[in-house]
Write a protein that binds this DNA or RNA. Sequence first.
RNA 1: GGUCUCUUAGUUCAACGGAUAGAAUGGAGGUUUCCUAAACCUUAGAUACAGGUUCGAUUCCUGUAGAGACUACCA
Length: 576
Amino acid sequence: MTAEQFIASKASEAVKALYNSDASASMMQVGVTRKDFTGDYTLVVFPLLKISHAAPAATAEAIGNWLVGNCPEISAFNAVQGFLNLSLSNVYWNNSLKSIVSDPSFGQLPSTGRRVMVEFSSPNTNKPLHLGHVRNNLLGSSVSNLLKAAGDEVIKTTLVNDRGVHICKSMYAWEQRFNGATPESTGKKGDHLVGDCYVEYARMEKENPEVLDKVHEMLVKWEAGDPAVRALWKMMNEWVFAGFEQTYKALGISFDKTYYEHETYLLGKELVQRGLDMGVFVRESDGSVWCDLTEDGLDRKLLIRSDGTSVYITQDLGTAERRFSEYKLDSHVYVVGDEQNYHFQVLKLILAKLGFKWAEQIFHLSYGMVELPEGKMKSREGTVVDADDLIQKMYDEAKATSEESGKLDEMSEQEKDALYNMIGLGALKYFILKVDPKKKMLFNPKESIDFNGNTGPFIQYTHARIQSILRKAHSSFDEFKVDPGVTLSAKEIRLVKIISSYPQKISEAAASYSPAVIANYAYELAKEFNQYYHETPILKEEYTGALQMRLSLIELLASVLRKATGILGMKLPDRM
RNA sequence: GGUCUCUUAGUUCAACGGAUAGAAUGGAGGUUUCCUAAACCUUAGAUACAGGUUCGAUUCCUGUAGAGACUACCA
């Protein structure tokens, strides 16, 4: 039970005893006391005035008196207007710290029994990954970690868009203009080489729009299984996959199951027939099939073209149905940009019309675009921030900053390399994940991602500091313990308070699919520690009881930092 | 045109309808005989505008202004 829940339940008892009335859960508003006031937690009494029939101050006073008189854990109170500030006793905090320290699975919530599929990344195989994909990948991966921590069983998946006109464009350009160039012959990463083809195609089409007909011919041949076209397609796709794999590895991203569009693009056609039989779809005289959504305030949606071929949403209907039935999913999260809000609205609506109850268990994690100071990234204008370049740049920055500090002289080259990677990626991941997914975010390539202040390296540095203290302390102690009588300082209580709220943060973050909640939490904890570090010399403490309590506290703090940032996909170094 | 989203210090981000709107960065000024100065401390600086709902509104509702997304027999 969290401290807030504890206080809410005690306050309910107080209301019952004082006013002989039951307060609903929504009336018990408990929050952490603001810094400028005395107390640990605050009960907002305004909602209780209906029951007490008394002034706010008098009600707060009465409840405060009852709580202090009847609960040994509550040591003091003060009432400011309608706010009842309560202080918890040292015994409470001491016990609280001890019980968290002895719980190895602290932060892992009990199983919900839910099985959730999370689809993210889902790249096109005609160009390399850019910063927008990086946000998608980091969000998807991190939300997966988050849901696991919140007790869900998670299946990470991706749907590779490896067929279609856009792929044929790259293929056509390669055939016409690249003289058999390969990743080996050019020394280029496969996805970048294919990306160059795509850019070249755009130029070709501008010179001569008729090349588009050639591309369509190619697509028709691909669909007919033409051996030469298929071979070219396979070869170029493999270049791209190899390139993506490298980028995923650098980012620390993985999937449990990969779908390829060339295997799934025909799915959904049976569902269309089913919809026709049910009378929720209609077939026009030209053969095209539509779903009328005008009653739901939307337009009519095309499902089958007049030539009998399916469209994007047809496939999505089919894959959703297949996944829910194959994996017996309780929920499916799609990490897709907010430009596709309409698409997912339509998708859910149509699935519901087809009678699938699980349609409402589909959640579109709609995230905002990453924008540059001059607006959206546009590949044609060369303003795209390439993922591989960015990762390399972060590494270089980390290296430069580390070398400048000159603290790493005893490390091997290999260790240094791993550390620069850790710091560079930590900065990048934190930078992206600390922003609420729903909001669009801005990236300015001219100002590189910071290593000072509210950043990933700040948290990493905090961890390294703690590890440094613990290394020194371990020359005196094998392990640390919390003696019952030891008194915690105000700052230490504050640290315990923040640490103990971690499980609650997990469920909050999971409920809103927002790793940003965890990122901000980790920062707050790290910041609080750094203040503590400056005002309290830990190793100088002469009283062993207090020393051990502090060491337990910071060891716990370091582990919570690792857990929280682990959800963000970050690693924390022991020295930096 | 229609549907939806957004607007908070110079800048980038916070704030279940709760107290005096928090951080970071940049600006100004400080802290290394002391567990790592990638840190810490002090200081100035913001809710686009106008109404409404209520004990209380950055948050909910309406309108105005500005920004963006979607509105393909593309994916």
